[in-house]
Simulated assay, not measured.
Amino acid sequence: MRLGYSPFNAELGYEEAFRLAAELGLDLEVAYDLHEALPLPGPKDLRATGEALGVGFTLHLPFVELNPASLIPSVRKLSQERLLRALEFGEALGARVGVLHTGQVPLRHPLALALAREALEETLSLLASSPFPVALENLALEEADLLRGPEELKALLSRFPGLGFCLDVGHALVELGPKGPLLYWEALRERLLHLHLHDNHGRRDDHLPVGAGSVPWERLAPLLKGFSGTAALEVSGREEGVRGSVRRLQTLLTS
């Protein structure tokens, strides 16, 4: 498993983030939304710094105010345009994988749900020529989230063989309880490309350091040991949150 972390969740600027990543032998998961909103270094500059320090990258594709399943064509078009720009960003960055949320439909009417699924598939069809692998992330944290449970995500991925799966263990815990991460893993392990690792107490998406909540890490450890893809710590707590999570994972993976 190639491990990285999210500076966005850890609330670290790039200077601190690169220093910590180089020290711990981690990659960085870049949040594309921040680069739309703030005057941050461009992807080529980040890549050059990463190459100098031995730090690689994964990319969280846009999700703030983005809805790839929007029922409104103009909103969906804007979401698609942002997504395509993010793919260009990720290619310049040298991203190993990109992670995508699957959208929302606040109107829980059968017609709205059917249209939203069609809209999402229209958007996903744009990823056929992505310059790097893209993994769909399990969400289901709010009533408006379109997809629920591993079977719905599995059915969607069956129609898009070029896409993979990102297991967010914290989201799975909130949605389905302690068995949630294991249920997603079992159902979608053949499509698994990337992991989001963080913790919570099963009520909300707290992004706590590994071991600080109720995620069943001991039960996940044997699966993590055999995983050869990429992973990102999406933990709060700044530098110590990252360091503590790395220590906890190392203990789990070597015991």
Results as ranks from 00 to 15, higher is better:
L3R: 09
L3H: 11
G4S: 07
S6K: 10
P7H: 10
F8N: 05
E11C: 13
E11Q: 14
E11A: 14
L12S: 09
E15D: 15
E15Y: 01
F18N: 04
R19P: 01
A21I: 03
A22L: 04
A22K: 10
L26S: 00
L26I: 04
D27M: 15
D27C: 13
L28Q: 08
L28S: 10
A31S: 10
D33L: 08
D33T: 06
E36Q: 14
A37Q: 11
L40W: 13
P43I: 13
P43T: 08
L46D: 06
A48D: 10
T49Q: 15
G50L: 10
G50H: 11
A52T: 12
A52S: 14
F57R: 07
T58S: 15
L59S: 10
H60I: 01
P62A: 11
P62I: 12
P62S: 14
F63A: 00
V64C: 01
E65D: 14
L66D: 02
P68R: 01
A69F: 12
I72F: 02
R76G: 00
K77P: 00
K77V: 00
L78S: 08
L83N: 01
L84Y: 02
L87C: 04
L87Q: 03
L87R: 02
A92H: 05
G94F: 14
R96N: 06
L100E: 02
H101A: 09
H101N: 07
V105D: 00
R108I: 05
A116R: 04
R117F: 07
R117M: 03
A119I: 01
L120I: 08
E122F: 00
E122C: 00
L126K: 06
L136W: 13
L141Y: 04
E142I: 02
G149D: 07
L153G: 07
K154R: 15
A155L: 10
L156T: 09
L163E: 12
G164E: 11
C166N: 15
L167R: 04
V169D: 07
A172E: 11
A172Y: 05
E175W: 14
P181I: 09
L182K: 07
L182T: 11
W185K: 01
W185R: 04
A187G: 02
A187E: 15
L188Q: 09
E190S: 15
L192K: 03
L195N: 11
L197Q: 04
H198Y: 05
N200D: 09
R203Y: 09
D205G: 03
H207K: 02
E218R: 15
R219I: 04
R219A: 15
L220K: 03
F227T: 15
S228E: 14
T230R: 08
A231C: 13
E234W: 14
G237I: 11
R238S: 14
E240V: 02
E240I: 03
G241P: 00
V242M: 05
G244P: 05
S245A: 12
S245D: 13
L249S: 02
L249P: 09
L249A: 04
Q250I: 01
T251V: 06
T251Q: 15
